[in-house]
Computed example of a mutant assay.
Amino acid sequence: MVDETSSETTKNKKGKNETWEWIKALGIAVVLALIIRTFLFAPFLVDGSSMMPTLENGERLIVSKLIYYIQEPKPGDIIVFHATKEKDYIKRVIATEGQTVEMRDDQLYIDGKPVDEPYLKQYKEQARAEGYVLTEDFGPEKVPAGEIFVMGDNRRNSTDSRVIGPVPVENVVGRSELVIWPLNKIRLN
């Protein structure tokens, strides 16, 4: 009889220890997930066509938050930023603080030098063939300190720095690194 009681006590202790181990493991997993999501990476859903053909409506991305703790955004980066308190936008960095950005005859100029935009080749060819310019002339505009000038790749359908003005660097959430959905379109950005 003593053996049965001792055996039951041992089983109860093992059961309690196992439950406690599961609770600790789940707690650690939740804390790690929060740290990763807050400081390292975050998912983002592309909402709209302003970044076509580079990114399409409904694609899901992984955004690196860590990168801009190490370095500043640079031209060509595809970033997510807080446009309003309720809405984040995804756009391409065109110019950084102190640079002058201008568009003339569908050609982008940074500090007076023409910039190649290979990601727009398809759209520019289509615009020329149909007799219009892809991007209306603007500028020259000097980017203020602590801000960046951003534009969507779908220049005719993008609310970007041409409309909302330069974006404070402090509003940048992170850089788009990877398209993860749909599965047939997984790719690095």
Rank of each mutant, 00 (worst) to 15 (best):
M1D: 05
V2E: 14
T5H: 14
S6T: 08
S6E: 06
S7N: 07
K11H: 11
N12V: 15
N12Q: 15
K13D: 10
K14L: 13
G15K: 07
G15Y: 03
G15H: 04
E18L: 12
T19S: 10
I23E: 00
I28M: 13
I28P: 15
V30I: 12
V30W: 05
V30E: 05
V31D: 10
V31N: 08
L32T: 13
I36Y: 10
R37A: 09
R37Q: 13
T38E: 07
A42W: 03
A42N: 09
F44D: 10
F44I: 13
L45Q: 05
V46Q: 14
V46T: 07
S50K: 03
M51D: 02
M51S: 02
P53V: 05
P53L: 00
L55N: 15
N57K: 11
N57G: 11
E59Q: 15
L61Y: 13
I62N: 00
V63Q: 06
S64N: 14
K65T: 00
I67L: 12
I70P: 13
I70K: 14
Q71R: 11
Q71V: 13
E72R: 07
P73K: 02
P73H: 08
G76D: 01
D77K: 08
I78H: 08
I79K: 08
F81V: 14
H82V: 08
E86P: 12
E86G: 01
Y89W: 14
I90G: 14
K91N: 12
R92L: 07
A95H: 08
E97D: 12
E97M: 09
T100L: 06
T100D: 08
V101S: 03
M103S: 03
M103C: 04
D105G: 11
D106Y: 10
Y109A: 00
D111S: 06
D111W: 07
G112W: 02
G112S: 03
K113A: 06
V115H: 05
Y119H: 05
Y119C: 01
L120P: 13
L120G: 04
L120A: 05
Y123N: 05
K124H: 14
E125H: 04
Q126R: 03
A127W: 08
A127S: 11
R128V: 14
A129M: 12
E130K: 03
E130R: 01
G131E: 09
Y132T: 06
Y132A: 01
Y132W: 14
V133H: 09
L134P: 13
D137Y: 04
D137K: 06
F138D: 04
P140H: 02
P140W: 03
P140T: 01
P140A: 01
E141L: 10
E141A: 11
E141K: 11
K142Y: 10
V143M: 04
A145V: 15
E147S: 10
I148P: 15
F149L: 02
M151P: 13
D153V: 12
R155I: 09
R155T: 10
R155F: 03
R156L: 06
T159N: 10
T159G: 02
S161A: 10
S161I: 14
V163D: 06
I164L: 13
P166L: 00
N171S: 09
R175G: 05
R175L: 01
R175D: 04
V179A: 02
P182A: 00
P182T: 03
K185E: 14
K185F: 07
N189I: 07
